[in-house]
Design a protein around this nucleic acid. Structure first.
Length: 800
DNA sequence: TAATTCGCTAGACCGA
DNA sequence: TCGGTCTAGCGAA
């Protein structure tokens, strides 16, 4: 029989664990496989055979049951690059692994004892979620389950969202009812379940809250939802629905077995599993996109995420007024529209972000729900764990706390950044090394266990600029897996070029190549991360040392050809063309590439017509220095590329950012300093006249620690403290949006969160926000501080 | 309770 | 009032 594997978990039948497969042909169905047993490896201290004898049949009392070793086998494996003989210890039940592992520690070091049973099954059988599997069927039992190729992703999807009555601000789950439950399906079916009329055609009017809860359960059943999307649903919607179901004496039977959901906790996020369906809370997924830099938003609300990812705006309501809207016949109609739009936005968002998670789940061979929201480091760990198995390698253990502290004492030297000369330049060519660190790792076989291998003579191996060398005879696991990722991604990108950008095939490939990119870029970090199983300071330093060498050698070659090297950062190189032809520059690139090892390539990033580099702030008596990581350029089509300037930072006010952008555009596009100066003057006038709305003056800064644990005073902290005193909530991780007002002495005193601010300090915004951000740029046009500030009147631009 | 280093800049604070 | 040092946050790669 053939079906698509959707998810794997296990159930207990008698004394044993049974793998439960969630599968799909036309409909979802379940099968069981009882041919798989939990095990782990032990690296014995003493003689393997003697230890094996001692362990056979060993029993431990564990919470009233007997945990038993059912089998001990000697196996030939590889660990940390060395061949080893290990004992494979099979246990009676997955629950017993922990107790037995503790017990056998006296005989050696356990390995791979923390791999969840269902995932162990997928790894050992070579199965991935969302691919075809084949098996022999005998009733509900499956045997010889094996992988049978890539499958299309096609699940019946339902998104949902709830609105709650909230006269006290935060709804209280024991008291405040759910007033609307909205849902949306693929294909257009959707509605808002409500028990007060809204005159909307999508309304599903029921008699009371209890009936609404029952209706929602019916919707889930009727639509036969295989995939459920929510936003914050694991932390809010589902627990709230459950609490309300209890209060109303009904059952929230969302699962196929009539159960509600099982709350889980993975790292930083809550999860909720619904039996027989996949429930994906999109909030952690969106956070993940924020962390890896795909998304740049300050506030991870559904509204923000939706507008950033989909490029569309969602209806807005005042959250605190929801209860009032519910009580008002006219306003309630708007609330229904809002509720409907929440479910629809959640559905669209899910469709947009899920393909990437699905691909990650396939690559690392882990259930989708385990992959949504985990960090890139954990993803790499999952991938390397799966690939270790197919390479007959035992996964190295995580370091203990003491080892972590020891590792944290040493530091890894990073990339090279060249100091640019401040100024405005014409005709710049920018090159970069595509995937510099991944390609270095692959080209030089850099791995914690290929370093100074001993089987190669140093001169014949890959010698790193640090003096270490890497084996040339045997490929390491990291270069091997990474090389495959890079190669496959290259194929995908080539194939994408032949496809219609609007088509499904293109979209799927794009999600796939994104997943590969995320993984590939995380490998280097794992070498230098103190808690990593594959930590190797020497290997990490070799990567960066090679990186510095390649970029600097390339710069040298460019100079030898007569180009001026304007700027270098890690893997990118900025050349001044100085009247040179584009063909010549491309020829130079070809020459460089001819001298690079196989996996490495210098690419043209682009030609730019004009670029600005500014000076960094220095002490008065110091010479002017160019600021690194701060520049702006414009290409022939008028596209502007801006890096590092205040205007790309969230901890600057919009008024300063907008002004800085306009100034940069005036210079880059029009080459007009008069225009630039006029823009500044207008902004200053508007600020002075008090015409600027407070929203444009908000500065956003995150509180990375709890309010009490700061050593210093700062505007964001001080604003947050005042807000807390006023009844608002600010915790670790809160984003504080504050305005500098006129009341107070120091800047911190003057800071108030936007909600509490009624005026603003024009002087602060002129002298501390607008002028500093534009002055650095105007200086490159020949205006210096004194030109811009008349004596006595610091903020004056009157002379222009 | 989960990848890295390099670099800029602020505001507070302290002493000359 | 200044210049230096420190903590902290954010961005580039």
């Amino acid at each position: 029989m053939r079906a698509i594997l959707v998810d794997v978990d296990y159930v207990t039948k008698g004394e044993r664990a049974r793998i439960r497969l969630m599968l799909k042909k036309k409909k979802m169905f379940r099968m069981f496989d009882d041919s798989f047993e939990p095990y782990f490896y032990l690296m014995p201290k003493g003689d393997e055979s003697e230890t094996a004898e001692k362990l056979k049949g060993l029993e431990v009392e564990e919470r009233g049951r007997k945990a038993r070793i059912t089998k001990v086998e000697k196996v030939q494996k590889e660990l940390r690059g060395m061949p080893v003989t290990a004992l494979k210890i099979t246990c009676s039940h997955p629950w017993d692994v922990a107790a037995i592992r503790e017990k056998v520690k006296e005989f050696g070091e356990p390995h791979e004892h923390r791999i969840p049973f269902a995932r162990r099954y997928m790894i050992d059988r070579g199965l991935s979620p969302f691919t075809w599997v084949e098996f022999e069927k005998n009733g509900r039992m499956a045997s010889n389950v094996r992988s049978a190729g890539d499958a299309p992703f096609n699940l019946k999807t339902l998104s949902f969202d709830i609105e709650t009555y909230n006269p006290q601000g935060m709804p209280r789950e024991k008291k405040d009812p759910v007033i609307m439950i909205s849902y949306a399906c693929e294909g257009g079916d959707g509605g808002v379940i409500t028990h007060r009329p809204t005159e909307r055609k999508f309304e599903k009017l029921v008699v009371d809250e209890k009936a609404a809860l029952e209706e929602f359960v019916r919707v889930v059943k009727r639509t036969d939802a295989e995939l459920l999307f929510g936003y914050n649903s694991a932390s809010f919607d589902l627990p709230y629905l459950k609490a309300r179901a209890e209060a109303n004496g009904v059952k929230l039977a969302l699962g196929r077995d009539g159960s509600d959901f099982k709350a889980t906790r993975r790292g930083m996020y809550n999860g909720a599993r619904i039996i027989g369906r996949l429930h994906v809370d999109l909030y952690p997924v969106v956070r993940f996109l924020g962390i890896i830099g795909t998304l740049k938003i300050y506030d991870f609300t559904l509204r923000n995420a939706y507008s950033e990812i989909m490029g569309k705006e969602k209806i807005k309501v005042d959250k605190l007024a929801i209860w009032k809207m519910w009580d008002d016949g006219e306003e309630r109609k708007k609330l229904a529209d809002y509720s409907m739009s929440d479910a629809q936005a959640t559905l669209e968002l899910g469709r947009a972000v899920l393909p990437m998670e699905v691909e990650l789940s396939k690559i690392v061979r882990a259930p989708l729900l385990d992959v949504c929201g985990i960090s890139t480091g954990q993803l790499v760990e999952l991938l390397l764990t799966a690939r270790s198995h197919s390479d007959n390698v035992i996964v190295p253990n995580r370091p203990g706390e003491e080892e972590v502290r020891r590792r944290e004492m040493s530091f890894l030297k990073g990339a090279y950044v060249k100091m640019p000369k401040p100024g405005i330049y014409e005709d710049i060519a920018v090159f970069d090394f595509r995937g510099l660190y991944p390609s270095i790792i692959c080209s030089h076989n850099i791995d914690p266990f290929t370093i100074n291998c001993g089987c190669c003579a140093k001169e014949e191996a890959h010698v790193s600029p640090t003096g270490d060398y890497f084996c040339k005879k045997k490929q390491g696991l990291i270069p091997k897996v990474l090389g495959e990722l890079v190669a496959k991604r290259g194929e995908m990108k080539r194939e994408m070029k032949t496809l219609d950008r609007a088509g499904d095939e293109y979209r799927m490939l794009d999600a796939r190549q994104q997943a590969f990119k995320i993984l590939a870029n995380s490998f280097y970090g794992m070498l230098g991360y103190a808690r990593s199983r594959w930590y190797s300071l020497q290997a990490g330093e070799s990567v960066t040392a090679f990186g510095r060498r390649y970029i600097q050698d390339t710069a040298k070659k460019a100079e030898d050809e007569g180009y001026e090297v304007l700027y270098i950062d890690t893997d990118s190189l900025f050349l001044l063309m100085k009247g040179g032809k584009r063909e010549d520059v491309l020829e130079f690139m070809k020459k460089v590439n001819a001298g690079l090892p196989g996996n490495m390539e210098l690419e043209l990033e682009g030609f730019y017509k004009r670029g600005v580099f500014v000076a960094k702030k220095v002490a008065k008596d110091e010479d002017a220095k160019g600021a690194k990581k701060k520049y702006a350029m414009i290409d022939g089509e008028g596209n502007i590329k801006i890096r590092g300037f205040e205007l790309v930072r969230r901890d600057w006010s919009d008024i300063a950012k907008k002004t800085q952008r306009s100034v940069l555009e005036a210079i880059l596009k029009d080459g007009s300093k008069e225009k630039a100066v006029r823009i500044v003057k207008e902004t200053v006038d508007r600020l002075r006249a008090g015409e600027v709305p407070l929203e444009e003056l908000v500065i956003h800064t995150q509180l990375k620690k709890s309010i009490g644990s700061y050593e210093i005073k700062s505007p964001e902290l001080s604003a947050a403290k005042k807000a807390v005193a006023g009844g608002m909530k600010y915790d670790v991780g809160s984003m504080v949006g504050y305005v500098i007002t006129r009341s107070g002495k120091t800047i911190s005193d003057k800071a108030r969160v936007l909600e509490m601010a009624t005026d603003y300090d024009a002087g602060y915004y002129i002298d501390h926000q607008v002028l500093p951000s534009v002055l650095k740029i105007l200086k490159e046009l020949g205006y210096d501080e004194d030109d811009l500030k008349l004596p006595g009147t610091q903020s004056s631009l009157g002379e222009f």
